[in-house]
């Protein structure tokens, strides 16, 4: 009982004393941090969209593509988060709860959940295209305004990948 109390007391003290978030490291400029957070938030909001494809899409090609993109986007998100950690940006991503351009909204997901076959595919392809277009756009911004070489390199790699994904999406959905 005493041990539980001491544990609780210690947890409260430790939590209460957690340091204020540090300022991002100097080598990462404001664009680097903003892009990493925005790209992470876009990925986070797109993953549930990919999760809807299996069992609803009328196209085997599209279902396979979505499964592959799901794995790829999880991996990309891990790379974005690793760089956020290197930049010492901690805490909740401010953009995840917020409908930003390119993000599927809660309404979009609800509508999509009720659709099947061709109707589903058309709507899904439109939403995922908007998402990839936005990722490509902001990756360009990072490459021209970012500072940290590793962040700019990731932006260049993602821009290439997502441009290829767009082409794959057109093939599978067209």
């Amino acid at each position: 009982m005493v041990r539980v109390f001491v544990f609780l007391l210690l947890s409260v003290l430790l939590l209460g004393c957690s340091p204020a978030p540090e300022q991002p490291k100097k080598e990462f400029n404001a664009t680097d941090v903003a892009w990493l957070q925005l790209a992470d938030a876009l990925h986070t909001r797109a993953l549930p969209l990919l999760g809807l494809v299996r069992g609803r899409s009328g196209s085997r090609t599209l279902a396979d593509l979505a499964a592959r993109l799901g794995r790829k986007h999880e991996n990309e998100r891990a790379r974005l988060r690793a760089l956020l950690a290197r930049a010492r940006v901690t805490g909740e991503n401010p953009h995840v709860q917020h409908d930003m351009p390119g993000m599927p909204t809660a309404d979009d997901l609800r509508t999509l959940t009720g659709l099947r076959d061709d109707a589903f595919d058309r709507r899904f392809v439109a939403l995922f295209r908007a998402y990839l277009d936005q990722l490509v756009l902001v990756a360009k911004g990072e490459q021209s305004s970012g500072s940290a070489p590793e962040v700019r390199e990731l932006a260049a790699a993602l821009e290439r990948d997502h441009t290829a994904d767009l082409a794959g999406l057109e093939r599978a959905g067209g």
Binding site: N29, T31, M100, P101, V138, G141
Partner: peptide, 28 residues
């Protein structure tokens, strides 16, 4: 669709904003 405070250097990253005062504000 720019925000030089929240998304500096990332044109098109933001939802649409209406700007007042300065005539030149953009993402940069």
């Amino acid at each position: 669709p720019d925000d030089p405070i929240v998304f500096p250097g990332l044109p098109g990253a933001s939802h649409m904003h209406s700007f007042f005062g300065s005539r030149v504000t953009n993402a940069y």
